[in-house]
Structures are given as C-alpha cells and as structure tokens.
Design a protein around this nucleic acid. Structure first.
Lengths: 302, 302
DNA sequence: CAAACCCATAGATAAAAACCTATAGGATAT
DNA sequence: ATATCCTATAGGTTTTTATCTATGGGTTTG
C-alpha cells in the first residue's frame, strides 16, 4: 500500500517505523504468494507493475469494505442499528407500543420484532433466552435475570353497564364472588393475582369461564356474559358497553417489568431501547401509572 | 464463513478437517478482535448475530475482490491484458506497425506504448531497461540481453530521378564516393554500416550532410540535394521523385532484431507479442524480407 | 436416565510470520 | 572519486498463529 504511494521502499520503512529490509522482504513474499512481480526496481526508483497496481486497487477496495464494517459496528454499538427482540405477555401489547413507536421513529434502522404470547409461552421463550427483552407483570425467578419496574398494572373489575352493581358504590369482594367471572387461562398474571387474593381471604369463585384474550373478555362482559378482572390498560377510553366497579376492599395492583437475562449478551439495540424507555416513560405513557425504576436496571447492566 | 452456512461449529470442523475446539477458538478470537459478539449459542444451535452476518457479507465481498484479482492475473498471464512497452529506432517505425496492428486487434486490452528515437536514445533506454522489447538493426552488446532476427533490412542507394547515375546499371562504389551524401547522425545503424563498408575498402566521403530523419533524407534526395543510403523499407512504393541505384559491388544488408533484457522480468504481454510475431511474421510483412528466427528467442525465454 | 452430541476452556506444541542487524552491490550526487 | 542513498540477501530472534488433546458442562434423544 504505502510503497505504491511513496514509490520507495526506504521511505515506506521510515513512515511505518520499520527497517528497510523488512519492507523489502514483505514485498518479496507478497510477490511469491501472488506469483507475479508487483514492483520493478530501476534507477533507485520503484515502478509498480500492472499486476501491482491492480492489487493495490483491490486492497483499497478491501479496506474500504472493512471500514464500512467498522462504521456499521459503530452504528450498532450506538444503538442506531441492529435488532431488539421483545417478547411480551398479551396484556402488555396495550401499553408497549406507546414506547416502541417513538423509539422506532428515533432509530429507524433498529429492527423491533415483537413476540406476543400468554404467560406460559413468554416464560418458555425466556427460559430459552430467545429474545433480548421480556415484558412480564409477574416476573419469573431472577436467578439469571434482572428486572426493572416501569409501570403500574392496576386491575379493575368490569361489569356490563346495566349490571346491578354497576351503579353501586362501595362494592365489596363478598358482593362479587357469586357472580360469573370471565377469566384468562390459569397462570396468567392477572388471574394469578386475583386468585391469590381470593384464596387469602377464603373466597372461592363458583362460576368462571375461561377466555383466551382480553378483548374477548371485554366484549363478552360488554354483552352481559358476566364480570371480568382485567388490567386497567386494556380498557379503551370511550367504551360505554361496560363499566368499572367501585370495589372498596380490594386493591389488585401489580407492575410491569422489563426483564433481561444476565447470562446472555444483551444487544446494543436492546440497551438503547431500555435507556430510551428510562428517559421517555413519562412522555410516552400516562404519568399517573408510571413507576420508573429503570435507572436501577440500566445501571446494573453496564 | 463456513460456520454461518452450517450453523454448527462441530459440523464446520468436520468439513474443514479440523477439530471442534480449533473452530471454537477461531471464532472466539475473531470476536475479540472485532470486539463484538458474532454468534450466539442457544439450544445447541448457532445463531449468527447482526454483526456476525454483516461480517460474513463483508468477507464475501472481500473474497469476491480477490477472486476478481485472480481472474485479472489469469488474463495478464494469458497475454490478454497488460502492457508491452516497445522502443524502436526511427527506421523501424516503417515496419513494426504492420505487426502491431494485427496484434492489437487480437488483444485489445493490451496496452502498446511505443517509444521511437534515434539509435543513441533507444540504446540509452535499453541500458536503463525502460521497456520490454527493443527493436534494433545493429543489436547492442548482448551481455544482459537476447536478440532474435525477424526481418532483413536491405540498404539501398537512392538518387534523384534525373541524376546521371540513375539510369546507369552496374554502378560501383567508386562512382559514388565523390557525390554529396545525405546521412543520418553518426551512430545510426544505417550510417555505421555504410561507413564501415567504406572504411574497409579505403574510401572516404568528401561531402556529407547530416539530416535528422529518413523522411528528410528521402525528400531532400528527391529534390536533388544529393544521394542517400536508406533502408529499403523506408521508401514509399510509388514515389517517382527519386530512384534506387543499381550498385553492383556493394551489398549493405543487416537485419532487424527484437531484443529483450534477460536481467529484467519480461511482461506476459511482451512474451505474448513475441509469440504472435513468430507465428504471424509471414502474414504481416512482405515474405521477401522475413528472416524468422524468433523461435530461438522465444524458446530461450521460457 | 444414560448415551450421544454440542460447545467452551485450558494447556501444550509446532509452524509461520514479523522483525531486526549486518552486509553487499549498484546508482547518484558532490 | 568518494560519500550517500537505494535495494537485496542472509541469518537469527521474538511473537503470533494455528492446531491438537483432554476435559467439563449443557441438551437432546432413545
């Protein structure tokens, strides 16, 4: 490379802080591997042959590609590029897009494949470490993982608008247990929380129907099929087909967590997203529910 | 490379006839130099990361460039590409183009820079080894060079059409020495040959004029300025302003030689040209003068 | 649940690459 | 002509690289 520019072996040696024989020998060996003369020495001047110049150009292009790769890595490390795979439980899909949208606009080159499943499915993915970030309400064992809370997940009781309890204030749990309840599958965080509350207070539901999604429950409640316990975030603001009950003696509240595995390398994009979330939670989500403890998570990831 | 394709370290090791730890370590070191994870191991499967795939692509392009270079070298070695620098004395420019034209048509990617000078200039170039092939009539010392004859170079005496000797047959050298002669510079092969002939027979020219080119001599002779000795090849076929003399007791004949240095690498294109010349002399030049001894030259160059 | 398979790591070795110093021969400049 | 500068070659040393064997810890599968 340098020899082509300086047209002198000695000068090249000086510039590269090497001795002249070293450079001579390098060239010699290069010529042997190529099996073609690359330079010719005449009157104390180096003349680059056709083959030599072609190799020079080839090398320039090659280095160009490696430079491009370096640039690519820089972007990757800066979180401007890459992939951040997020797996979330069903309920989280009502809130996470509000963070993902702005983030994606800011970093258009970051791929954000989302996996949505019920708790069991996401848990399996977590065990296998298939994603960068997991969103749980009830975080799993944290042996190989760290979690950070970022949002309250208040559970509310919903009933058809025309239900007897709908207009009543100060409803109690006792009033509810005889109702028919529409619930997600066992193991879902919402259901687990509700059932542990019931159990600790000695109640048992007599009439439950299992439904596979929050929408199904919401619509079913709206059409009078029974009562439901769902995350507050699931409810669309202006739906009048159902209403929230004012239950005075129950406060079912959990939190959403971002969870990452500590025994896996976390992609730069994922780190970048968590950083973004830490700084922009309040702007993207209703401040009322934000519980920003991501600073702890992010610090522990450095 | 192979790991990306097989998605398995062990399989790669088998294909490359290496052991598995070797491949593992190679990847590890590659990741250390790049300072970025390139693959991730999960469930006994290798997952290539973004950075890893980008590097894979980069490498493919790089290898592509080297392949291109190999192709280029192949063409170079085949004589289809490259450069063949030829230096020739003035007189040769009347004959060499007849070979160069067809050759250039056959190998359009070969550059053919021509250097034309008087004998002293070409000799200097030869000493410095500035060209691939030199064309001499009177070849220089062959200590570091080899030469091959390819064409007769008959010298003829020319006179104005209306000159007294023009119509005479059986002219002798004695008849000529008192004439004014137009000659090239001392050292030119033509002049050297003529002068050595004169000297060996004890003649001295009394009246000479030096001219810098064969054209100048031809035109000057045509306009009656004196006589000339020039290569037969210099004379255009249908010029009636001068005529050749029928000198019976002088036969000035030399040959054209291709000369190459043996202490310099000869470009593939130059070898290719000499080979072409060997095979096509008779087709390109007047058979009458061809003396094809290039087979000897070419064989000694292998 | 054991056998088979996968990958990671440690430690050792042999080959190669990368340099250096010393030296010699040719070209250039003073 | 003599000092200077250039490149080539020889010989030797120090790193670096490329591999291997041995081993250990997980996964998958019969």
């Amino acid at each position: 490379m340098c020899v082509v520019k300086t047209r002198s072996i000695s000068e090249t040696a000086r510039q590269l802080h090497l001795t002249q024989p070293t450079v001579s020998q390098q060239i010699k060996r290069l010529q042997e591997t190529v099996n073609e003369p690359l330079v010719m020495v005449n009157q104390q001047r180096i003349h680059v042959t056709e083959a030599g110049f072609a190799l020079f150009q080839t090398c320039q292009q090659v280095f160009g590609h490696f430079d491009d790769y370096q640039d690519y890595l820089a972007e990757l490390r800066g979180g401007e590029r890459g992939r951040c795979k997020i797996a979330m439980v069903n309920t989280a899909q009502y809130i996470l897009p509000k963070l993902l949208g702005p983030y994606s606009n800011l970093h258009p080159h970051v791929e954000l494949p989302l996996e949505i499943g019920n708790r069991a499915e996401v848990l399996a993915r977590f065990e296998r470490g298939e994603d960068d970030i997991y969103v749980f309400s009830h975080p799993p064992s944290l042996e190989h993982a760290k979690a950070g809370r970022f949002l309250q997940n208040p559970l509310v009781f919903i009933a058809p608008t025309n239900h007897a309890l709908a207009s009543q204030t100060q409803v109690t749990l006792q009033d509810l247990v005889s109702e028919r309840f529409l619930l997600r599958e066992p193991g879902s965080a919402t259901r687990m929380l509700f059932e542990s509350e019931l159990q600790s207070r000695g109640f048992v539901l007599s009439n439950t129907v299992q439904m596979a999604s929050n929408e199904a429950i919401r619509v079913a409640v709206g059409s009078g099929m029974g009562l439901g316990v769902v995350s507050r975030h699931v409810l669309p603001p202006h739906d009048t087909s159902f209403c929230m009950l004012d239950v005075k003696d129950v406060n079912l509240a959990s939190h959403w967590y971002f969870v990452v595995r500590t025994d896996r390398h976390l992609s730069h994009a994922a780190r970048s997203f968590l950083k973004f979330a830490q700084l922009n939670l309040e702007q993207c989500l209703n401040k009322q529910w934000v519980t920003n403890e991501l600073n702890l998570l992010n610090e522990s990831l450095n």
